[in-house]
Design a protein around this nucleic acid. Structure first.
Lengths: 120, 120
DNA sequence: CGGGATCCGTCTTGATACTG
DNA sequence: CAGTATCAAGACGGATCCCG
């Protein structure tokens, strides 16, 4: 990827040049990484699949985060049916590149927070 | 650490059993992991050192997050001077265990967000 | 019914002023 | 230097409504 790797774009500007700060400008909230978990770990694709997971994300937040993740280039929104039109939310390569972050979080959480990954 | 590893405690309850969700209940905001970055990557110890970093965290948020990180058991607040009393914020073993999460974020950010870690 | 959009009250953030 | 206080602005959360 000499030089020509596509960078993800934000709607607003980043706080600083630090890659960690930029990460948090993208996914630094309570829900975004959970949606990515659902995509990458549990293979969720449809709106309703995200909506009905154990954490019960509010629908307005879900709609907003899906939109942002598509804007940022972490998810694709691909139609799979007409009338009524329905969409799958699928990870882009950049979205898949989030997996190590999620795995590191899972490792910490399992060791120190007494968590177990919920059944798919 | 067969079984008897101390779990971190929250002030409120967790959303679910998922270790990733629990992680985000602890550090799922724009600033908390940035403070941990300052501690673990740049060796910041004192209030003023956190305050004057490039991202310019608001002081009320800084005070709040330091308090929470101490409550959660990720940082220690150790006195290093009397009259006026001053404190160092130092990582606990659990705090140090966050490093893989931060490293994974840095890797992603450097690859996809055009970030470079700011000078210490 | 699935996939959202809209309202609205509440809680959190962020900027800055202030204090010991 | 290390925080608190204040307060406007924004994010969250939930309920409800809407549309195909």
């Amino acid at each position: 990827m000499p030089g020509h790797m596509a960078w993800l774009t934000m709607d607003k500007t980043y706080r600083s040049d630090c890659p960690i700060a930029r990460m948090l400008d993208l996914v630094g909230d309570k829900w975004t990484l959970l949606i990515l978990r659902d995509v990458l770990v549990f293979g969720c694709k449809k709106y309703g699949e995200f909506e009905h997971r154990v954490e019960r994300i509010p629908t307005n937040i879900l709609a907003d985060r899906l939109k942002r993740l598509v804007q940022y280039g972490l998810l694709h929104k691909v139609p799979y049916q007409d009338g009524p039109k329905r969409y799958h939310y699928l990870p882009t390569p950049q979205g898949k590149a989030m997996l190590p972050v999620i795995s590191a979080m899972r490792d910490f959480g399992e060791t120190y927070l007494g968590g177990r990954v919920p059944a798919g």
